[in-house]
């Protein structure tokens, strides 16, 4: 494999991996704190991307403002899902599968609301309207100002989230709730407030991930769903409980999808169309061989664990 191709794929790994990490951390958080594998997470991403797209089309071109809009919409979608659907269902102590099904239903509604929106205003496959400048170009490797924005931002957000979780009182309470919900209640942790805050953070970060994604590719209502399998693969690599494991998992998935796939394509002429099989193989392999993922490997005081 030529070095230029390798460099490009590694840059892609970094770029995609950071976005996967941002999304997969949300999956891990909701699973740990809420005991819910939330498939509607995909649509929080898409909703954020559309919020970013619309505000950029309206003339707001400051990336920070764009991301803020995406955060707000993603966070709102998540909080409303919790308050209108998940919370009442949890209070009725429904089965685990009912919650999964409900998350599918929320995702379905959101996705097709976005389709309606995109259809009405012709917003399919548009890029968020920040002007593109090429910063660096060599062979197939192109680095734009958007890359310079997106990658450090997602890395920074992942870092901030880790900090919040491991160092702040709110993060401590979130981890406490994930670890032992009944004791959390007894010692007076305001469980509902912590849950609301968790949903806001999870949805907001998904929204920002959507915006960052939309800056680099294009926005469409299926974009979140298209990534959800890879994102779940990353979270499962983290054992659905470990924060650092999830981040590592995100880069492993991105590396396999980009560098390893390209290598197989180049060396064994494996069709690139098989790329979607990679997260599936990762999921199956992890579940069969090591269902705890990286979590036991990286277990420290600060990790989430059911």
């Amino acid at each position: 494999m030529p070095p230029a191709l390798l460099t490009t794929s590694l840059v892609n790994t970094l770029q995609i991996g950071s976005l996967y990490a941002l999304m997969a951390l949300g999956i891990t958080l909701t699973f740990s704190v809420m005991k819910l594998p939330n498939f509607a997470h995909a649509e929080f991403v898409s909703a954020g991307a559309y919020a970013a797209l619309i505000i950029s089309l309206a003339g707001v071109l400051n990336p920070l403002l764009i991301m803020a809009a995406a955060f707000v919409i993603g966070a709102l979608a998540a909080l409303l899902s919790h308050l209108l659907v998940f919370k009442p269902l949890e209070q009725r102590q429904v089965s685990f599968y009912t919650l999964i099904l409900a998350s599918f239903a929320i995702g379905l509604i959101l996705r097709y609301l976005l389709f309606l929106l995109a259809d009405s205003f012709n917003l399919f496959d548009l890029r968020i309207a920040i002007p593109l400048r090429i910063l660096f170009r060599q062979d197939s490797l192109i680095l734009s100002n958007l890359f310079a924005w997106a990658v450090p931002t997602s890395l920074l957000l992942v870092f901030l989230l880790t900090l919040l979780l491991n160092r702040s009182p709110l993060g401590r309470e979130m981890r406490a709730l994930a670890n032992n919900p009944s004791l959390a209640r007894v010692i007076g942790i305001p469980v509902e407030r912590v849950k609301n805050a968790t949903w806001l953070i999870v949805g907001g970060l998904a929204g920002v991930a959507g915006a960052l994604w939309g800056m680099q590719t294009a926005v469409n209502p299926l974009m979140g769903w298209a990534a959800i399998i890879s994102v779940f693969a990353a979270a499962i690599l983290g054992g659905l409980s470990s924060f650092s494991g999830t981040i590592l998992g995100a880069y492993v998935v991105a590396f396999s999808e980009n560098t390893i796939m390209l290598f197989l394509n180049y060396s064994f002429s494996l069709d690139l169309a098989y790329k979607p099989a990679i997260p599936f193989i990762i999921i199956i392999a992890v579940l069969l061989i090591r269902p705890q993922g990286f979590s036991a490997l990286l277990r420290r005081g600060g990790d989430l664990k059911r």
Binding site: A105, R111, Y112, D119
Partner: peptide
């Protein structure tokens, strides 16, 4: 689109 939204709400 409307059909899926309606089904989601029914569910």
């Amino acid at each position: 689109y409307v059909r899926y939204i309606v089904y989601g709400i029914i569910l």
